[in-house]
């Protein structure tokens, strides 16, 4: 479904990605793990068109989307829940969700989708008319995921969904991610520092280090890999 070939991204003189290649198959959950500054978030930002690609290719459903503007990429079916949540603090929960469906015209379907979303994240329904900035960290994360889902993406990019969230909630959020993957058949590319959690739900995993892909294997294999265990799983 998504294929990245030899992708390079620079921030000024700093090389953030030094030629990464990866593939995400339809219906999969793929995890991208690694330490701070490895280039995980940059990879997602390059896919969704927020970061400029200096060379390489990003192919989505057979179409080249490299360096296309972000709104075109959303329209093509890729939705990004950015790191640090980045919800619209002054818009209400409902308005935030409606913004997620910004490119859709089918009002009735949008309403249904919002109702469905509330069945996945009942907490959000309680907060429906509150400004997004007043939600708790976990609720904001749910809102960010929900907002990204409302674009009805084929591919959902999740950037650090566990960042700054209470440990009990982390588990819930990961369960919901699996639920979304199974029930909506949404393909998910997940960037995560919590490697243990990410590998437990993913089908396939990539390990990044200083802008390069270090290792890649099915998630269950990766979780057993000695090197990964030592470096990322703390075992």
């Amino acid at each position: 479904m998504l294929e990245i070939r030899n992708l390079h991204v620079h921030y000024g003189a700093v090389k953030a990605l030094k030629g990464i290649s990866l593939a995400v198959g339809s219906g999969q959950i793929v995890a991208l793990i690694g330490a701070n500054g490895a280039g995980k978030s940059t990879s997602l930002r390059a896919i969704s068109g927020i970061a400029d690609v200096s060379s390489g290719e990003i192919i989505f459903d057979g179409i080249d989307i490299t360096n296309k503007p972000p709104h075109v990429i959303v329209f093509a079916g890729i939705s990004h829940a950015p790191e640090g949540r980045m919800i619209f603090a002054n818009l209400t929960t409902r308005e935030n969700l409606e913004m997620g469906a910004y490119l859709r015209k089918d009002k009735g379907e949008i309403r249904k989708d919002i109702e469905y979303l509330f069945s996945i994240f009942p907490k959000l329904k309680e907060r429906i008319n509150q400004p997004g900035g007043k939600l708790s960290g976990g609720e904001q994360q749910m809102l960010a995921i929900g907002r990204a889902l409302l674009a009805r993406p084929k591919l959902l990019l999740l950037d650090e969904p566990s960042l700054g969230i209470a440990p009990i909630l982390v588990k819930t959020i990961f369960q919901k991610i699996v639920e979304i993957n199974k029930e909506l058949q949404t393909t998910i590319l997940l960037v995560e520092q919590n490697a243990h959690m990410a590998l437990s739900i993913a089908d396939y995993g990539y390990v990044m280090e200083t802008g390069e892909i270090r290792l890649h294997a099915p998630a269950s294999e990766l979780a057993q890999n000695e090197e990964v265990k030592k470096a990322y799983l703390g075992m």
């Binding site: 969704s48 709104h71 990004h80 950015p82 980045m86 619209f88």
Partner: peptide
């Protein structure tokens, strides 16, 4: 309107706005 809320979205967070498909420019 949904269209006009785009302005508020751009004000609140430009990156998030472009991530939901708003043409910030």
């Amino acid at each position: 309107s949904t269209y006009g809320k785009g302005f508020l979205a751009v004000r609140d967070d430009e990156i998030a706005a472009s991530a939901v498909g708003i043409d910030v420019t």
